[in-house]
Design a protein around this nucleic acid. Structure first.
Lengths: 223, 223
DNA sequence: TGTACATCAGTGAACGCGCGTTCACTGATGTAC
DNA sequence: TGTACATCAGTGAACGCGCGTTCACTGATGTAC
């Protein structure tokens, strides 16, 4: 998951070697993401986007041949930002600690911290938004969205298996489910955080997930 | 969370002492829920609802003064079904076991089982759907939605505190977060299940949550 | 028991507005020779 | 160095369709006396 707005200038410097003339397109995508997370895709009109960006409707259609192509571009952008963000956070976790378990636990702590300091009032996940409107989109976009979840699964599953080599866990751990819970937990935390308008919920959920991972691989010292 | 379609005849017998002439209204709400979970509220047209139910547009406006009132009625219906479902499941868990922890664990197992046997291909949660479109709704509806999450929090928090009296947990457990995780975990599991089109994801997430609760209160016998 | 009236659960036709999309056009910048 | 042409990044006006909403009306059932 990436969280709109946050670190965007950093991203555009690192990820996109964007020729300056694509600024408008990027701006459309940025505004569109915020609008879609607030009202959904169908209720987000091209009219409001161009008003916010300051171009005409025809200008919009120069960049996207139709509204569906906007959706696809939004998803692609979101996925790229998302994976970049996770790479970055967990790389830093590993830099601080070269044991796979403890590096992961540090990464999760950094992750929780970052989620607690998001500048937006109500962060959200575009994948979740799209999944509750998926009849609006073509197979292309649905596949993209699916792949974004599978990327999370792969990322966390590989890490968990690496950890399991050094810390043989209790019997019968469902690694796939535990890997999926990383994404699931963030999705759920975002929803609760939005509904209750409480930004502390999401980071605390991530820390609970961290506890679960810890308890799964480490004997509890308190017992 | 309630899951549209499932057990509906049972519900309408138990919960609603519905005079038969309100059948049409109920049918509209039922059809609307499925449509909204598939495409979102804005993209769900009154036209398609009346086509599915078999009335005219004016018939619709006899039951709901405008589209916003439909949304509110959907939310109310959803919340009622939802709490009824949870009451039922966890009451049965406690009937099978009068220890608060083990009754809860049985309830969670029953819950996971039920979620694995839902008749729908892609179950979803109306609260989650609405929260990603909340700019469409008035404060009334947003408050309703908020209250539905608070009901989950209260329900699970009370249970966890009851358990803690008999099973003093490790230090520093965030009970509120652990209570919220019940809802969060279901929300996340629903999203992943939808995105990957895999109905096993949700029940497995619930069982992982069950593991977390168990490990929090019970010393691990394997260690 | 019959009649008058009220309510319930709708029908049918019309409305205006906003939306996504199209099309012919344009002025500034880049490239070939 | 100048000229011809191509591409980029848009503009402006018009379109038709579908949507939510309104309004006057109706036939069947329920209730009062």
């Amino acid at each position: 998951m990436h969280f709109s707005g946050q670190l965007d200038s950093w991203y555009s410097a690192v990820m996109l070697e964007t020729p300056p003339r694509r600024d408008t397109r990027e701006k459309i995508l940025e505004v569109a993401e915020a609008a879609v997370l607030a009202k959904g895709f169908a209720a987000t009109s091209i009219e409001e986007l161009i008003a916010a960006v300051g171009i005409t409707k025809s200008g919009f259609f120069y960049h996207f041949k139709d509204k569906g192509e906007l959706a696809k571009a939004m998803m692609l952008r979101y996925i790229a930002h998302d994976s970049q963000l996770l790479d970055d956070i967990f790389r830093r976790g590993d830099e601080l600690n070269d044991d796979p378990l403890h590096g992961f636990l540090v990464g999760l702590k950094l992750f929780a911290e970052m989620l607690g300091n998001l500048p937006e009032a109500h962060p959200g996940c575009l994948a979740a938004s799209f999944c509750y409107q998926d009849q609006l989109f073509n197979k292309d976009i649905r596949e993209l969205n699916k792949s974004s979840v599978l990327a999370w699964r792969k990322r966390f599953r590989e890490r968990l298996e690496l950890i399991a080599q050094r810390y043989p866990p209790r019997q019968d751990v469902d690694f796939e489910a535990l890997a999926d819970m990383a994404a699931s937990n963030v999705e759920g935390g975002l929803i609760l955080g939005r509904l209750l308008q409480d930004v502390t919920i999401l980071p605390r959920q991530v820390l609970l997930y961290r506890d679960l991972v810890k308890m799964t691989f480490l004997p509890d010292p308190a017992r």
